[in-house]
Each structure stands twice: as C-alpha cells, then as structure tokens.
Amino acid sequence: MHRILYKETLGPDITLYRLHAPDVAAYRKPGQFVLMRICDEGERIPITLADVNRDEGSITLIIQSVGKTTLKLAQMEVGDSIPDIAGPLGVPTHIENVGHVVCVGGGIGTAPLYPVAKAMKEAGNRITSVLGARSENLLILEDRMRAVSDKIVITTDDGSKGKKGLVTDAISELVEQGEKFDQCICMGPPVMMKFVCLLTKKLDIPTMVSLNPIMVDGTGMCGGCRVTVGGKTKFACVDGPEFDGHKVDFDEMMARLNTYKSYEKVALEHYSEETGCRLEASLKGGAE
C-alpha cells in the first residue's frame, strides 16, 4: 500500500501527490513512469514521475483529473492509501552534455519535463525553458523550472501570463533572436508535441518527445501502447516512452488515444451515478 504523504492543488483539476513508494524511488531515473491502480476494480494507468525523494522513500506525481480514475484519486486525502504502484518503467532519458537544450513543456507535461531538465542542467547543459499553458492558472512548476533554467519563457493561449501565443511562436522567436539550440526536449499534449516537432525539424534541432499512450501492463506484454517511429512499430512502455520526435507518427498516435473515448464517457457517467447514489444514501442515513 502506498500512503499519500502530501497533496497540493496546483491548478483547476491539477493535483500534486507525494506518495510512499520506496521500491519505485530506489532506482528511478528521469524520464521513467509508473503504472498505478487506485482500487480493487480499478484500471491500470501510466503516470510519469515528476520527482522522487529517496530519503523519504517517496515519489511525486502530478495528475490532471480527466477521467473516472483520476477524479476518484482526487477524492483521496493525505493518509489514504493507493494499493498498486508498479515501476519505475520505461527507458530513462539519455542525459549528456550537448550544449544548449531547449526544454518545452505544455500544461501538465511540465511535470515529467522537470526531472529531465534538472538532470540535463546538472550534466552541464545550458537550459532555456519554454512553458506553455492555455491560461495562467494551468501553468505548473514555474518556480522549479526557473531554478534549473538559465532562461525561461512563458506563453499562454489567452495572454493571462507571459507572452500571448503558443510555445512554437516562442521557440521561433528565440531562434530569430540568435539562440542556437543543440537539442529540444518536448513534453506536453500530443498536438503540441506534433507542432513543436514540425518546427524543430525545419530548424534542424534534434528533438526528444515523451509519449503517453494507452497501456495495460507496462512491461511489453500487451502491445496496446504501440506507436510508429521511423516507419517501425515500437512499444512505448519498453522501447520508450521517449522517442526521436521527428520520426514519430503523431497522427496515428493521437487517433489511437481515442480508442476508448466512448467507454471513458460511460465510465464517467457510471461514476457520477454511483457517487450520486452514495451521497443520497449518506443523506438518508443522516436523517434517520
């Protein structure tokens, strides 16, 4: 069992959890993820690790509530326990001093980006970070990213913070200003990664992306997470989750993410009915 040690709301439906998981913390490296199952009848969902603390034996996850499992998780409080966390999984990020790295984070994608940016900084790279979000309140980990960056640019779709616009605009602008990037590391919504990759390909900047497709086991057994990279089928769980962004077939990946969309809606409806019933039951109990 994995006790919730700390919980903090970072934005609307965005929550940071610190969980007791010494086995996962012990050998985890930046770029890796876990699979978690939050209750007995629960599904297994892949979540990228935002941080670990080996002394405490804890891991940090930042999760946006979008479906039944993540909503249910958000109801859990400090002291509650999560039954299953398996990991760390996936191939760790290749950390090396390449010179100047531009770290691009979109929305919740900044969570897995942070440990990678930090490790790249520690390896001696100059780090320029570009963080994008739809709006100021959806921007996360700005302070932490600032601490590991030599330069930071914030963009929001609505202009509520930083520059109004997309991360791609900011990257283009930096390049126009004469910044030379030796590598780009990009983590965020698939559509953002797709457009960043289109741009960096034009700019000839090698780009690494972290993919988060549907997974069941996370050990290469089910093949649900297959993605086409350079014309070849890869399993994101064991071959990734990081790949050469210029080779990833993003359109196929985005389509595959929709496989269970109609089912997720059913699950959510069932959940709200279920919790509605429970609420009624407790009200009735209170009246008696």
Binding site: E41, G42, E43, V216, D217, M221, C222, A255, T259, E264
Partner: peptide, 27 residues
Amino acid sequence: LGVLSANEYLTRANLMKAYTFPQSDTP
C-alpha cells in the same frame, strides 16, 4: 484502432475484469 494483441484483449477481460465494465474501470 480495434486491432489488438490476444494478450491485451485477454488481460483486459480476465485480469482487469472488463466483462463487468463499467462496474470495473477497465474497458
């Protein structure tokens, strides 16, 4: 979409009890 390995299909059905979805969470 809709093409899957036997492992995925059976794991969802058996280990994850997808046959009781939406009582269980795995579709």
